[in-house]
């Protein structure tokens, strides 16, 4: 899946220059980098939430894209109704909820859930239907270690079963190493290095990437 090159500025101020990248189908690609490096902007542009400067969507028009924003939100509905918003049967929703260990909350008001539960519900809401490209913006930011491990497992499983390609924005290099087959390192709004996760996260070519990994103790 080819992501075309794009630029993004806000009110005339340039924030992102993405040269394009080829995502391998069915792979998870981790997007890493410091705060303000443009990771979330990439996610938002690809999901069509904000428009690139050339007003074009950088992904092919005929693919379905699912997006989980950094701030998970529970709509004023029951948990199961939230999960079924984009489709899927009640049985499918319950199976998914059980897998993400939130099945006991099915009939409860979704607004009453904790941050971690809301994030798992938001993930279930996406995984109930197949997508060609799934964009997750720090999906485990509000989760504990156990839920994080479960989420990584469930998303990897979803990828294998549906052949969906995932773009996973994360702050955790350990997480990137656990889940990703490809990786992109962003720095100051530019793509610094991209390629196989194994190479980029263990033996990068660029000095900046190496410094970043060293700074985070890897």
């Amino acid at each position: 899946m080819k992501i075309s090159a794009f630029k993004k500025s806000y009110e005339g101020k340039w924030v992102l220059d993405f040269p394009g990248f080829e995502l391998k189908d069915g792979n998870i690609c981790a997007v890493i980098g410091s705060n303000g490096s443009g990771k979330s902007t990439i996610a938002k542009v690809l999901a069509g939430i904000v428009k690139a400067d050339n007003r074009r969507l950088p992904v092919p028009n005929d693919i379905s894209v699912g997006y989980m924003p950094q701030k998970s939100f529970a709509f004023r509905l029951s948990t199961i109704s939230n999960i079924r918003l984009s489709g899927g049967s009640e049985e499918e929703a319950l199976v998914l909820m059980k897998r993400l260990q939130i099945d006991h909350l099915a009939r409860k008001r979704a607004k009453k859930m904790s941050g971690g539960e809301t994030a798992r519900m938001a993930l279930a809401r996406l995984l109930i239907r197949p997508y060609d490209l799934l964009i997750l913006d720090e999906p485990t930011a509000s989760m504990d270690i156990e839920s994080t491990a479960l989420t990584e497992e469930v998303v990897s499983e979803y990828c294998r079963n549906t052949g969906c390609t995932v773009l996973w924005v994360t702050h955790s290099l350990q997480q990137a190493r656990r889940v990703a087959q490809q990786a992109i390192f962003m720095r100051n709004g530019c793509l610094c290095e991209a390629g196989e996760a194994e190479k980029l996260l263990f033996n990068p070519d660029k000095t900046e990437t190496r410094e970043f990994l060293e700074f985070y103790g890897i």
Binding site: S64, Y67, P69, S72, F73, R76, L126
Partner: peptide
């Protein structure tokens, strides 16, 4: 927040408007 979450699910404009109205009840 409502828009980002609803658009992320691929929901159309009308359904997004209904969800927003439901949030504002």
């Amino acid at each position: 927040t409502v828009r980002e979450n609803a658009r992320g699910l691929g929901l159309g404009r009308f359904k997004r408007f209904l969800l927003l109205a439901n949030e504002s009840v």
